[in-house]
């Protein structure tokens, strides 16, 4: 075991990690931050997306030791300071961008990364950016609409591709 320290949602946190401890396991099992979900074993579903030094990554596909010293942002840090939902989270609620909610933490973190890079994305750009986030429930349309709304754009009734 080695001690790993990172800044998570703005606060310094440390814990023990083996070499093989995944960042997702470190967050969930060592620190109790269970908002980051793990939906697959193949690096394909995106439920585990967090930001490491500002970049969206799959926390199941990175070792905790690799994030030693890094700034990590998770879904737990997304709400506004007063505890209310941030603009992306609120839009997911308003536009029914979730059903079971399992994929939602990863969707919100990917959406946040997209809007940082590209504040006014087109519908096609949103769909392209979410290629690594799988949702079993919604059929994606309402997720896309939520992100259009969160970026301050008009929300058309989006059609199937």
């Amino acid at each position: 075991m080695t001690k790993v320290t990172m800044t998570i949602n703005g606060k310094p946190r440390s814990g023990d990690a083996e070499g093989r401890t995944l960042l997702s396991s470190f967050l969930r099992d060592e620190l109790g931050l269970t908002g980051t979900h793990v939906g697959c074993d193949t690096s394909q579903c995106g439920a585990c997306v967090v930001h490491v030094n500002g970049k969206a990554v799959k926390s199941c596909t990175m070792f905790a030791a690799e994030a030693d010293g890094a700034e990590v942002d998770t879904i737990e840090g997304q709400a506004n300071a007063d505890g209310s939902l941030n603009v992306i989270q609120q839009a997911f609620q308003d536009y029914h961008g979730l059903q079971c909610g399992f994929c939602t933490p990863g969707m919100v973190m990917s959406a946040a990364a997209l809007l940082k890079e590209n504040p006014i994305p087109s519908e096609a750009e949103i769909r392209h950016y979410l290629e690594g986030n799988i949702c079993r429930c919604t059929g994606y349309h309402n997720i896309v609409r939520a992100i259009l709304a969160a970026s301050g754009q008009d929300v058309p009734a989006v059609a199937a591709e």
Binding site: S43, G46, V49, K55, A56, K58, L114, Y129, E131, G132
Partner: peptide, 9 residues
Amino acid sequence: IGDPAVRNR
């Protein structure tokens, strides 16, 4: 290649 998170790593 892959998706944005894969490309970031």
